[in-house]
Write a protein that binds this DNA or RNA. Structure first.
Lengths: 138, 138
DNA sequence: GGAGAAATGATAATCAATTCTCACATTATT
DNA sequence: AATAATGTGAGAATTGATTATCATTTCTCC
């Protein structure tokens, strides 16, 4: 009796096989705002890059550990990630497409909001509304 | 012959039996900031009120449906709830105890952050840091 | 007081996000 | 090449939040 294993060697994908995590981090770096693991994965798949979701998580986790990435909470649910080398900025969250866009600039008058005895170490500003694309699509 | 039924009438709790949802909503109304379902439940239990977690969820859900409550995302993970009749305000999120506190006042210069073509319908400001209690406990 | 509607609490089911596992692939080291 | 160390993808397992279910218990209105 003979057992024939033809596991697929088909998926060897030699083109896109340098270091998948590099691919992941590069894609995040090119984004116009912070992305969740799944958003990032979708973009990669959508652009023809074949990576596993687990690899995306690994790349993000490692990026945070190594200090090149930063996790961003406070944008709807879920956690998003962005490169840590960006200048101080805030985000615009489109309620239609749920994408988060980087903004430039900051605001005044935050200190006056801090209650007595509280120590402020940071702040987040999120603008809500409709992005250009979604506004025009309406 | 006489049969004595002493089924437990013990847990009749007539004190706290008006309407559990009222109890839940009242507790939320007395809080100094938005609470998650679980936070609210913990407070109730902690203060001797016996309510089921499911009831807390039901009360919150209904409050939102009826328009008396508002869900607040953007404070760390999870969703919190607050009465809708509060004036426009923002929050301070303590990174130690993870409690969210209401703040008074707002900020200037938000409009200038909105990119061309985007429509802003709202905004959130979250201050991060250490609350009074946690700061002193250190 | 009684009947049906609504509320309640315990717990199971669901769901999405994240992590884990493992067989295999790739790279690095001799 | 040989071996070891690390990376990878697929899917299973885990986790936490929320919702659904169901047997009781209360409420409401007659």
């Amino acid at each position: 009796m003979r057992i024939d294993y033809h596991f697929s060697m088909q998926r060897t994908n030699q083109q896109q096989r340098a270091n998948q995590q590099q691919t992941v981090l590069r894609a995040l770096g090119e984004a116009d705002g912070p992305l969740s693991a799944r958003e990032l994965w979708s973009r990669l798949i959508g652009s023809g890059k074949s990576v596993g979701l687990a690899t995306v998580y690994r790349a993000l986790q490692r990026g945070v550990e190594e200090g090149t990435l930063e996790s961003v909470e406070g944008l709807g649910r879920g956690v998003r990630y962005e490169p840590k080398d960006r200048e101080h900025h805030h985000h615009f969250l489109c309620s239609t497409c749920d994408h988060a866009f980087d903004l430039f600039g900051c605001v005044e008058g935050l200190d006056s909001l801090v209650p007595d005895g509280f120590q402020m170490t940071g702040h987040e500003v999120v603008l809500l509304g409709t992005c250009d694309a979604c506004g025009n699509a309406a």
